[in-house]
């Protein structure tokens, strides 16, 4: 799957180039790089406002070697719809992928309406949600995809709080409820699985939804080198089930190869460190373990 990157010159020819201002260890930039390797140059991309947009296109510089457009926070899917419509009517759609990208807030919160509209109208668009579980670009505020008990700057832990008191929104299920041809969840921790899923979207006409777990160094508060490890632990603990679904029905799941307790995942991240301070925190960890257990049961991850 991976294109041959044999020399330094090869690295400079990537469709998503280095030179962007993403944080050291950013899993989102890793995911974008991997995704673009599969999608190829006949791709037109949109990005919602967010980290990716800001760090990849600081005028006059751009990391994109494909046509790319950013408009607003909530309209990535609608912009992509317009692009797809323009390509259809001018007969240029065949052989061109329309990619619509946003973060978790731009997808599941402010951009949900535009996304649902794009699904329902059946545009031939691949929508990718880079899920880092909070509004990282604005400084780690809570979003609808922030996991249970996570510290964010607007759901801080405190004397009487363990952080975000609501479970993560089941966004892939919302996509599946639209009965779109393809929905998948992937992770920056499993690049081959991610690339396989992206490749699959190339053969499917209609709306496709792909959600990718992308750990965030400053937001999740861990050392940059742990980005992949943490992403893998999310999957192995059952907190981030990876699966594929077609027309609303799950068709495959990535089985857990070596099950780990959620504690292994939580303890590496500063956003959960308040759970390790006292007995009450332990009870909270048990609740998170229960979420993981339920996921394992529901998706058949073992």
């Amino acid at each position: 799957m991976l294109t041959n990157i044999l020399t330094k010159e090869d690295t400079h020819k990537q469709l998503f180039t280095m030179g962007h201002t993403g944080c050291s260890g950013c899993a989102q930039s890793m995911a974008v790089k991997l995704i673009m390797q599969v999608l190829g140059k006949n791709t037109i991309a949109t990005s919602a406002t967010g980290c990716l947009e800001v760090f990849s296109t600081k005028f006059p510089e751009s990391s994109w070697n494909i046509p790319w457009i950013h408009s607003l926070f909530e309209n990535s899917a609608a912009i992509a719809s317009g692009i797809e419509a323009a390509l259809q009517i001018t007969g240029k759609k065949d052989g061109t992928t329309v990619l619509s990208q946003a973060g978790d807030g731009g997808t599941a919160d402010i951009g949900l309406q535009a996304l649902s509209g794009m699904f329902e109208r059946g545009h031939d668009v691949l929508y990718i949600c880079y899920d880092n579980g909070a509004y990282m670009n604005t400084g780690y505020q809570r979003s609808g995809l922030t996991p249970y008990d996570s510290f964010t700057t607007t759901s801080p832990s405190g004397k009487i709080s363990f952080g975000n008191n609501r479970p993560k929104k089941y966004m892939p299920e919302i996509a599946m409820a639209h009965k779109i041809p393809y929905t998948a969840v992937a992770s920056a921790g499993y690049p081959i699985d991610l690339q396989k899923k992206v490749k699959k979207t190339l053969s499917i006409k209609g709306p496709k939804y792909l959600q990718v777990d992308v750990p965030c160094v400053p937001g999740w508060k861990y050392e940059p080198r742990y980005s992949v490890k943490i992403a893998q632990l999310a999957v192995q603990s059952g907190l981030y089930p990876l699966f594929e679904a077609e027309y609303g029905k799950i068709t495959s799941v990535k089985k857990i190869s070596k099950r780990v307790p959620v504690e292994e995942y939580l303890k590496l991240q500063g956003r959960f460190k308040h759970l390790f301070k006292n007995e009450a925190g332990k009870a909270e960890i048990e609740k998170i373990q229960k979420i993981a257990d339920e996921n394992i049961e529901q998706y058949g991850l073992l």
């Binding site: 030179g19 990391s63 994109w64």
Partner: peptide, 17 residues
């Protein structure tokens, strides 16, 4: 940039990170 802030492809390479 008479016509808005449009950037050339891959121009980020000039930013040695």
């Amino acid at each position: 940039f008479k016509l808005g802030i449009i950037a050339r492809p891959g121009s980020a390479l000039s930013n040695k990170t």
